[in-house]
Design a protein around this nucleic acid. Structure first.
Lengths: 221, 221
DNA sequence: CCTTTCCATTGACCTAGGTCAAAAATAATT
DNA sequence: AATTATTTTTGACCTAGGTCAATGGAAAGG
């Protein structure tokens, strides 16, 4: 697959960009692959550019001094990540690691900023991208601070259901341990809550498949 | 004070913008004042534009169904807020309220987007602004999820100390109840932690003044 | 197929911090 | 100053959920 194809495939960042400029974007993009568990960058690293997931899955996460992890985002195909240092000129604020073998594109900072400067629709797309992130972060903070773990899990299942267009059955796209970290808890607690929700007739869990028995009650949580 | 002066005063968003364009920005800005406790917008409202604090203090916050509040940001002079819907075209993700009598500028969406489109440095400044926000949100999520309340308070005091350029004595810029909400806790807990930190010889608290007795230990938390 | 490793679940226990209630202190208003 | 309203502090209590430890399953590598 050539870079231009990778760039266009399902990426909101480059949607509506004139074809000529897509060529310029493709010209500065650098292919990169990484295997499951491989680190892409660390918090504090200098940000020389940002990435986009072409195929695979990448987590952005923070670690506490005593080793607990909090996942900030999980990005899939078409989603860019690591843009913050590009525009703010500071080191990466978090770590990035591939959850599965992944294929990425890397965009060098300097050259990308030049493209953004010359191309208003690219700038607006990037502004929309960052705005969307801010919205998601706000929801995550609300979730962590104002909801208890069952509420956060319920919200996540509802989110998955909407994303997968099904109110009957959803599939977890990440291991349960990672889900715990995304929800700001630990695997033991998550496991207990899955069990409790099952007892209460809300869901049934089989591996990574969740059968939703009472979507409404889940949504109202 | 004329609008152009208000726009320039200490605002990172408009720094380095050619004078001619500042006039254009000033031309679309609308003056607005609001008194202490007044709501500026609510979560779910359509975003017809964004604001900048000229004077005063504004909080951006979320409410839980049972009335608990989580503050996301507190913005002071020179800081813009409410930009997310401008670029993402969705309703406001949170509520905004003036903490004290405040003077604001309002920038209508459509017209501001036109300016951004025509002016690359304005676009880059806005990108830097949003990037900075993302960084702060990441820190807040880390704080909520990976630190306990004393650690969050310590981090906040250190942050204030840096902002105020003093390691001996800082002044809280908000009431303690609001600080509790910013740190994701409640006034009772915050009060107890202030008391404990005082017992342990870290700080002394007198109203909104905090004397720092052991800056290093506070920082290492 | 077997072994090793990783992941998920379950139980016993404990603590950070939230809830409820009341007093004390500070600020705002008449 | 006196009154009212708002913040802050303190005490008694309780629970969500984290820690530690052990076991059961599933997946990966030989």
């Amino acid at each position: 697959m050539d870079k231009k194809k990778k760039i266009m495939a399902g990426s909101l960042l480059f949607s509506g960009i004139p074809d000529a400029q897509l060529d310029e974007v493709a010209a500065i993009a650098v292919d990169k692959t990484c295997r499951r568990g491989e680190s892409i960058f660390f918090e504090g690293d200098e940000g020389t550019g940002f990435y986009m997931v072409v195929e695979g899955q990448v987590k952005i996460y923070k670690m506490s001094f005593d080793g607990k992890e909090q996942i900030l985002h999980i990005f899939g195909p078409g989603e860019p990540f690591g843009e913050v240092p590009v525009f703010h000129g500071q080191p990466f604020p978090a770590n990035a690691m591939a959850l599965v073998n992944s294929s990425l594109l890397f965009f060098p900072r300097r050259q990308f900023v030049d493209l953004v400067t010359a191309n208003p629709s690219l700038a607006l797309n990037m502004l929309a991208m960052l705005s969307f992130r801010l919205r998601r972060f706000a929801a995550q903070i609300e979730s962590l601070s104002l909801k208890e773990v069952p509420g956060r899990l319920a919200a996540y299942i509802v989110y998955l259901a909407e994303e997968q267009g099904a109110t009957e059955r959803v599939t977890l796209d990440i291991p349960k341990g990672q889900l715990a970290s995304l929800l700001g808890t630990i695997p033991e607690t998550l496991s207990r809550i899955f069990a409790r929700m099952t007892e209460e007739g809300l869901i049934r869990v089989d591996g990574r498949t969740i059968l939703i028995d009472d979507f409404e009650r889940l949504r109202e949580w």
